[in-house]
Amino acid sequence: MNSASGASAPGHQGRRTKAKDPAAAHDRRLLRDMLLIRRFEERCVELYSAAAIRGFVHLYIGEEAVAVGVHQALTEQDAVVSTYREHGHALARGVPPEAVMAEMYGRVTGCSRGRGGSMHLFEPGRRFYGGNAIVAGGLPLAAGLALADRMRGGDQVTCCFFGDGAFAEGEFHETANLAALWGLPVLFVCENNLYAMGTALAREHAQTDLAMRAASYGMAAWAVDGMDVRAVERAARSAVTSIRAGNGPHFLEARTYRFRAHSMYDPDRYRPKDEIAEWKRHDPVTGLTEALRASGRLTSGRLKKLEREVTEEVEAAVEAAGRAPEEPVDDLLRHVTGRDEEES
């Protein structure tokens, strides 16, 4: 008998095939992406302590929901501009963990050939333009990229991540004004983690509602819970859809929190311990995990599998970085502005 008669297919007698749940699969993917960032960053802490990674390192632990949620709304044709706290952005963008870790190690197989390190991840093939060490330095670049894309045609969006500290810089206000004036397709994502290095938001800004202030430039702007990856995704999709429709730049204030100090050098004495503990109760990774388990869309076995896959992926990146060569001394003058022009 054929399947229309109600008989089971050959080899599946007596078993029912579970219906696929695309929404559940998508949420599990969000969880996996956040887990990858979290475990990558935790491994970086260990490697930094062992002196395998040197220089400045700014961890993204606690803020994973912002990068992962926003990237759900972006395509490969869109551009992303980041800050010096960009490991999570790079991984969410699809830069391979091996290339990111090799860059952390200063090896030639890194996405910036080992020249940039933690603060200068760069992958033009994925339209990932920094890693910028200067606070607010990526904002004017985002406006330029958006203008170039619009002049070439198409509906590409430039997404620019920056912190609340950058909001106090002139580059933000100049860029926001110009982007709104020219109707540039820019998504401004302010990762408001309440501290510009060690300066609390209320000690730096007389008006702490950053979304409201951004709206004064004539762009759509609103705040979102940056500890909820699904809320971030919904907000980002709404904003990007509107930008692609020709409605000019949009601003998202993702209210989030970094669980670690500003950098590995920071003693972190400016934040109350109870404040950190309270924010950890809203951990984006734990929150989504518990929600999925409560709804029956994530079993213990599947969670263990996700953890195992992510751990293996990070360890493979560490091993590859450890084996990778350093850049030859003879190549150190290559790719230097002006030098290549002189030799050509």
Rank of each mutant, 00 (worst) to 15 (best):
R323H: 09
L298F: 13
D225I: 02
T17F: 11
F162L: 01
H250N: 10
V57Q: 05
T299S: 15
V80E: 04
A148S: 12
A50D: 14
I37R: 00
G144R: 06
A231T: 11
I276C: 01
G138F: 05
R234W: 04
E64Q: 02
A166P: 02
L306A: 09
R126C: 09
D266H: 05
D266T: 01
L91S: 12
R297V: 11
H173M: 07
G183C: 07
G183W: 03
L201F: 06
K273I: 14
K304V: 11
H58K: 01
Y270M: 07
F162I: 08
A324R: 00
F167M: 09
Q77W: 13
R38Y: 06
L332P: 03
P267I: 08
N247W: 10
G11F: 15
W222T: 05
G154H: 05
R115D: 12
V229P: 00
T311S: 15
T241Q: 13
P272W: 08
G226Y: 00
A73R: 03
S242K: 09
V80G: 01
A254Y: 01
F251K: 01
R39Y: 06
A168V: 10
Q77V: 15
S112F: 08
E174N: 11
N2S: 14
E191F: 02
L35G: 10
P328V: 07
L139Y: 08
A166F: 02
E278D: 14
T109D: 08
T337V: 13
V240G: 05
R16G: 14
L147C: 11
D228L: 02
A221Y: 03
V318I: 02
V95Y: 07
A50W: 10
D33H: 02
V224S: 03
G153M: 02
Y129S: 02
R29A: 15
W222H: 00
W222N: 04
A221W: 04
R150A: 07
A148Y: 12
E41D: 10
G183M: 01
E46N: 12
A7I: 14
R281G: 13
